Amino acid sequence: MCGRFSLFSSFEDIIQAFDVEKMINEDEYTKNYNIAPTQNILSIINDGQMNRMGYLSWGLIPSWSKDPKIRTKMINARSETVVEKPSFRESFKRRRCLIPMDSFFEWQQISSSKQPFRIKMKNDQLFAVAGLWDTWRSSTGEKINSCTMLTTSPNELMSSLHHRMPVILPTKAYETWLNTLEQDTQLLQSLLVPYPASDMEAYAVSTAVNSVRNNDQSLIQQIS
């Protein structure tokens, strides 16, 4: 699964990496070293004409749901069953997004405790995880745009840390994934595979990352 990540790249780098044409105001973007579920996270969608940047609440609330609290169980979606699950299948067809990040965190069980690890690209490159989004409206008119991250089986690097990993898409797949007219299930699912371990690295970080109250650059520093 993926339950915590970081995004601290510059505003300009994000725009360039994802060919964003319609963006939020730069002062709305805040670097974040400890992003957690239910928070609003920066996401990229395509509106049929251009790539747009905006915030989505992390934890999908299906449009038909009666209770928005379901979001806490919807931070991740298994890529193997996303076509079948009622909570995700319509979004998989029409509402796909990219979730930019610089790294994500996973916890490895060591004896009686869990050690957090930071996982990133070896070249420190910004990357994107495949996501789905939906819009939920309450009976009183409240509107929440929310999202989930897709997961897949782990690559060689991740297998020692967890039995799942987020679906990291290669740059060449961004356009296909965001294309709202693309509904070829086989083609889309062919993108949902483990990212090459050879391009990634993982290292232990401070347990300070365990608390969402902590949010600074020290959380991404390697510890011995």
Rank of each mutant, 00 (worst) to 15 (best):
R96K: 15
S103E: 06
I45G: 09
K31M: 03
P116D: 00
I44N: 11
K120S: 03
K66N: 08
I99G: 06
T81H: 01
K122Y: 03
F92H: 08
F88D: 07
F92R: 12
I75K: 03
W107V: 01
L42A: 04
K69T: 04
P68Y: 02
N76T: 14
I61Q: 03
I45K: 14
E28K: 09
I41A: 05
T72A: 10
S43A: 15
M23H: 12
R94E: 10
S112D: 11
K31S: 14
F105V: 09
N25H: 02
R96F: 06
F88P: 10
Q49V: 08
G48K: 14
L56V: 01
I45Q: 03
S91K: 08
W107L: 09
D102W: 11
L60E: 07
S43K: 04
S43N: 13
S57K: 15
D124N: 15
T38S: 13
Y29S: 00
N123K: 14
E21H: 14
I35A: 13
F105C: 07
K31D: 00
R78Q: 15
I44K: 08
A77C: 08
S111N: 15
D47V: 10
P68K: 05
T81V: 10
I75T: 13
I35K: 02
Q39T: 13
A130Y: 13
V20H: 06
V82P: 07
